[in-house]
Design a protein around this nucleic acid. Structure first.
Length: 254
DNA sequence: ATGGCTTTATGCTAAAGA
């Protein structure tokens, strides 16, 4: 089973890229982040073989789950705060596997209310993952975590040390989730390699390879045992009118 | 350079992203 995640930075602007990538790579599941609008092209995706479930929001955020298999939606919001209206979470069951797609808050600037919102959101995510671990539910959680796990995941760790994506509090939230028993799938088979999933549109970040690794897959223990591979496909970042993120793909045995 | 691109909004400038 091949599961992918991609922050597309507007599904409307990136639909052709997404369709082309799906037809070439044929994943069983694609988690999409940053739909950036209320319209979702479910019919068009259906014509190329993908069911979909979307949690859209006007102008900002928005996540979706695409699958070649039936999707049973479990949750369309992250539990723990009824007042949170930002579309950042979708949880489903596909092929007896719990699949969760997330778009974690950015959190910048760190002296604004956005940073405590980010940390509180990540704490709620940790609480949800705790429940799933206690249940023993086989789980794959993927998406844009907006967290740089370690220095080797950033082209300039010193320059990023006070950014919300690399601040110690943000990294501690990710580590707390790993400490529940989840595994960063990318680091299982890629050793100490420096690979990135995001390159800024500005300052020639892509041609200079000034990237950061912020899109991740976390696997519960029984799913790690089935892990075949996890890789980042940088090719779509080089396309004309590209998203600033590129897909990450995890493959697990059936 | 507290933002050099890119996208959405019923726009003609602002907000958000990371």
């Amino acid at each position: 089973m091949k599961i992918a995640s991609w922050n597309v930075n507007s599904i409307k602007a990136r639909l052709e890229h997404v369709k082309n990538w799906l037809e070439k790579n044929q994943p069983d599941v694609l988690m999409i982040q940053e739909l950036k609008g209320l319209e979702f092209p479910a019919d068009e995706l259906k014509t190329i073989g993908y069911e979909s479930a979307a949690v859209p929001q006007k102008a900002y955020n928005g996540v979706a789950m695409l699958s070649r298999h039936p999707i049973h939606v479990e949750l369309k919001a992250l539990p723990g705060d009824e007042t949170d209206e930002q579309a950042r979470y979708i949880e489903a069951t596909i092929n007896n596997l719990r699949t969760i797609g997330i778009y974690a808050p950015n959190g910048n600037p760190v002296d604004s209310e956005k940073y405590p919102y980010k940390l509180a959101w990540l704490e709620r995510l940790k609480e949800r993952l705790t429940v799933l671990r206690q249940e023993g539910t086989p789980t794959v959680i993927g998406g844009d975590f907006n967290i740089i796990p370690e220095a080797k995941d950033c082209y300039d760790p010193e320059g990023w040390k006070n950014d919300a994506l690399f601040r110690l509090e943000s990294r501690q939230k990710l580590r707390a989730m790993l400490n529940l028993g989840y595994t960063d799938a990318f680091r299982v088979g890629n050793g100490q390699t420096q690979q990135y999933s995001f390159w800024d549109y500005q300052r020639g970040a892509w041609p200079k390879n000034n990237g950061i690794r912020i899109d991740h897959f976390l696997l519960s223990p029984s799913v790690v045992d089935r892990l075949v591979s996890c890789h980042i496909d940088a090719e779509p970042r080089g396309l004309d009118k590209a998203s600033d993120h590129t897909p990450i793909i995890v493959e697990i045995n059936d």
